[in-house]
C-alpha cells in the first residue's frame, strides 16, 4: 500500500517529529518536520497505522491519529495537527538585594506582568 500524506502542523509547535507505526509496532516512517506544510510518501504493509506528531518543545504534548485503511493500493490522506500549549506552572524563587551593599531587602513586593 502506498500512501501520500499531506500534513499540516501548526507553526508554534515546530520543529517536530512525525512517527508512523503499524499497530504491531513496526516503524514505517520517522522524520523531522521543520515546516508547517508537508507532503510525505511512504509504503506500508499494514492497513492500520498510528500517525504521531511529537513537537520538540515539551509545552506541546504529542498528538496521534489512528487510521484504518481499506484494500486499495494507493491512498491520499490529509491530516492537520493543531497544537495549543499546555499551561505549565513551576516554582520560581527570587532574591532581592541592595545593589550597593548587597544585603537582603527586608520587605518588598516584586510585581511580574506577562
Amino acid at each position: 500500500m502506498k500512501v501520500r500524506l499531506d500534513l499540516t502542523v501548526s507553526n508554534n509547535a515546530l520543529p517536530a517529529l512525525i512517527i508512523i507505526r503499524g499497530f504491531s509496532g513496526r516503524l514505517v516512517l520517522y522524520k523531522r518536520l521543520n515546516g508547517g506544510k508537508n507532503s510525505l510518501c511512504f509504503s506500508a504493509r499494514e492497513r492500520n497505522l498510528i500517525i504521531t506528531v511529537r513537537p520538540f518543545n515539551a509545552c506541546y504534548p504529542e498528538k496521534s491519529y489512528f487510521i484504518k485503511f481499506g484494500c486499495k493500493i494507493c491512498y491520499r490522506l490529509r491530516l492537520d495537527f493543531i497544537f495549543t500549549p499546555k499551561v505549565v506552572v513551576s516554582e520560581q524563587r527570587f532574591c532581592l538585594y541592595d545593589e550597593f551593599y548587597r544585603f537582603p531587602i527586608s520587605s518588598a513586593v516584586l510585581e511580574f506582568e506577562n
Partner: peptide, 10 residues
C-alpha cells in the same frame, strides 16, 4: 505579586 521577606520569595 511576589512578597519578598529578608531578601527571598517564591
Amino acid at each position: 505579586n511576589v512578597q519578598i521577606t529578608n531578601g527571598q520569595g517564591s
